[in-house]
């Protein structure tokens, strides 16, 4: 009996080891990049690869000495936060209306909203570019933030409508009977109950805006440049690709998102399926 138990335990250990190996295999390219970010330029390009080396922080220091990097970073942070916050707020109001009052055309608008997000970015950027060039919004902060907000609205509405549908209208009715105003119901009764939906919408859209490249490249300007665009433009300065720059920037820029998904792992599924699939992961 005892040996059977032992066997079972060892099997379990092996199974756990396998899962960890798989996780590390998936992470290995990123790990390689992380290692490279602590190497000097010559060490990165040494073949066979140098497995043992003295780590240097020089690349990270150099990153902040680049002209524009601080600006790019501030832009990325400021624009993604404000765009997503605007989007989540207006989407929440719309989702409440769609969920509770079901105005005429709800299904159609929900459908078109979703379709717009399924179109290849290059197809969306053509008319937006023309619009922005004609109105002078090209390269302005408000133009970029509102555009990103627009891009975050469809999934936010979908995610939040799903969550509000899950809150029983009884709550609303009770509040009305007790003399609560609609604003009170929306912000004090419903909002706290859909917090997971708000977080999911926030996480999913911030991942998108934070990483976005094409739109900023086309309809942004010098002033509104973000880190991904800076990366695309900076990576071949002075002949040859600057690998230490690519590695360091990627490692640094990805860190906030990695921390995000560590803490908010359970919202990732809801976010990436815009609320249509929920469950434990």
């Amino acid at each position: 009996m005892e040996s059977r138990d032992r066997k079972k335990r060892i099997k379990r250990r092996l199974y756990h080891a396998l899962l960890w190996i798989i996780s590390l295999v998936f992470f290995s390219p990123i790990l390689w990049m992380l290692i490279c970010s602590f190497k000097t330029k010559d060490e990165i390009l040494t073949i066979p690869p140098k497995w043992i080396f003295t780590p240097t922080l020089q690349n990270y220091i150099g990153l902040f000495h680049r002209i524009n990097f601080t600006r790019e970073l501030i832009n990325s942070t400021f624009m993604s936060l404000s765009a997503v916050l605007i989007a989540v707020l207006v989407s929440f109001l719309a989702a409440y209306s769609f969920s509770r009052f079901k105005p005429k055309g709800t299904d159609l608008i929900m459908f078109i909203l979703l379709s717009m997000r399924m179109v290849p970015a290059a197809a969306v950027v053509v008319p937006i570019y023309l619009l922005y060039a004609a109105t002078g919004w090209k390269g302005t902060y408000s133009g970029m933030i509102l555009f990103y907000a627009m891009f975050s609205i469809p999934f936010s509405v979908w995610i939040l409508k799903g969550f509000i549908d899950g809150v029983s209208p009884r709550f609303d009715e009770t509040a009305i009977v007790n003399g609560g105003s609609r604003m009170h119901i929306i912000f004090k009764v419903v909002l706290p109950q859909v917090r997971p939906g708000l977080i999911a919408a926030f996480i999913f859209n911030i991942i998108f805006v934070w990483n976005e490249f094409l739109f900023n490249y086309i309809i942004g300007g010098k002033r509104t440049i973000t880190v991904p665009v800076g990366l695309a433009q900076g990576f071949t300065v002075g002949g040859g690709i600057q690998w230490e720059f690519v590695a360091t920037l990627t490692a640094f820029y990805s860190l906030p998102l990695i921390i995000f998904i560590f803490f908010f792992q359970k919202y990732l599924l809801v976010g990436m399926t815009f609320g249509t699939v929920r469950g434990e992961v």
Binding site: F26, P29, N211, F213, L231, T250, S254, I258
Partner: peptide, 9 residues
């Protein structure tokens, strides 16, 4: 992590 990195990076 792979799916949340910037595709460009």
């Amino acid at each position: 992590t792979p799916m949340i990195l910037a595709p460009l990076a």
